[in-house]
Design a protein around this nucleic acid. Structure first.
Lengths: 200, 200
DNA sequence: GTCTATACAAAGATAGAC
DNA sequence: GTCTATCTTTGTATAGAC
């Protein structure tokens, strides 16, 4: 889209700046001036490329949502893998991705919460949580328990530490690097716990 | 504080309105005018009682933080109860409290994230997570594993469903009432899973 | 495409009457 | 204590020159 430019830039610089600022402060607290400054360009230019703050935000948000839910889509619908293999893959995918994007879940969740009408049924994660191959396998293994419990447990244990990260740091529980090591340890532990859980 | 008034009101009405609006939209997206309207009073009056939007917010936030972390403080430092009993108590306390305040965790966490400097070491949750009786018991039981993993797991499984609630609703996974039943089911399940986890 | 200058709207806060 | 009216700041968006 937009006009071709030699250094494939400016537009992308603004988008990148928008990612940074929106993710850090949230939509409402972000000023377009902040984004312009972060991008090293002028405020008017931002409105030239993207029509408004909201348009720019929607672009960024769509990316973030795709990233947050995209990691598991191919995993949970694979017919070739067992439950246990899927769990390993999900946990690894999330911990790796969130190690690089620690603020992602909290950002997406809180923006959805603050502005639910913007996301009216545009989020397709539902099918992943209720109709995937993974869910079918869980029902077969544990017919008496709502499979969503297990899905939530995996996601909880993988994602929650990153959501709670601001508290850990504010409360001095862990430094950022300790947080990293901590998350790494969980890769194998969560799988192990899940096995105990599903066999209990 | 403030002046006495017959119906013990106005000030409290504003505070209550502030709780509602801040929790629903977050600090940045909240307009003092919204709070005034919700309280059924005038904007000027809000500034008369509380000096500024920020002062009012800090008041509300302090309450919310206390509520979010207060539930577990007496439980995890009890010398008379076993690990398993503590887990049951923690899970029950959180699921009950969050059933009545579903938006609480996401609100507190995202505000801390968006404005970490406001909370510089004012959050005392650290001690609960690292120096409680509960933690000591966990170390004794599983000396080879960082006890924080288990604490996080309990909190994850109890709290995360409420944090993800906006997605469930936006994506049509569950209605609000189904969410309630779902959370209720987890009371006993989480305890059961935790036992499997810690004995594995 | 990029800038400076500015219009316009929204939001926080205060003055002053009652 | 409570209101109406208003000041001031800030933030989004646009006009228009280069």
């Amino acid at each position: 889209m937009a006009t071709k430019s030699k250094d494939a830039s400016t537009e992308e610089k603004i988008k990148e700046a928008a990612r940074t600022v929106f993710t850090k402060k949230g939509y409402a607290a972000t000023r377009t001036r902040d984004i312009a400054e972060e991008a090293g360009i002028n405020l008017a230019l931002l409105n030239y490329y993207f029509r408004s703050k909201e348009k720019l935000f929607e672009l960024v948000m769509a990316e973030k949502v795709a990233k947050l839910f995209g990691v598991i889509a191919p995993i949970v619908n694979n017919n070739e893998t067992s439950i246990e293999e899927k769990v390993t893959l999900i946990v690894d995918a999330y911990i790796t991705m969130l190690g690089q994007n620690p603020g992602l879940p909290l950002f997406v969740l809180s923006e959805i919460r603050n502005n639910p009408e913007h996301f009216g049924n545009r989020i397709q994660a539902g099918k992943l949580l209720t109709e995937s191959v993974f869910v079918k396998q869980l029902i077969e293994r544990k017919p008496d328990i709502n499979p969503l419990h297990f899905v939530i447990n995996i996601l909880s244990m993988s994602i929650f530490p990153f959501i709670a990260k601001p508290v850990f740091e504010s409360a001095g529980v862990m430094t950022a690097t300790q947080m990293n090591d901590f998350a790494e340890e969980r890769r194998t532990l969560i799988v192990q716990w899940f096995k105990a859980m599903i066999n209990s």
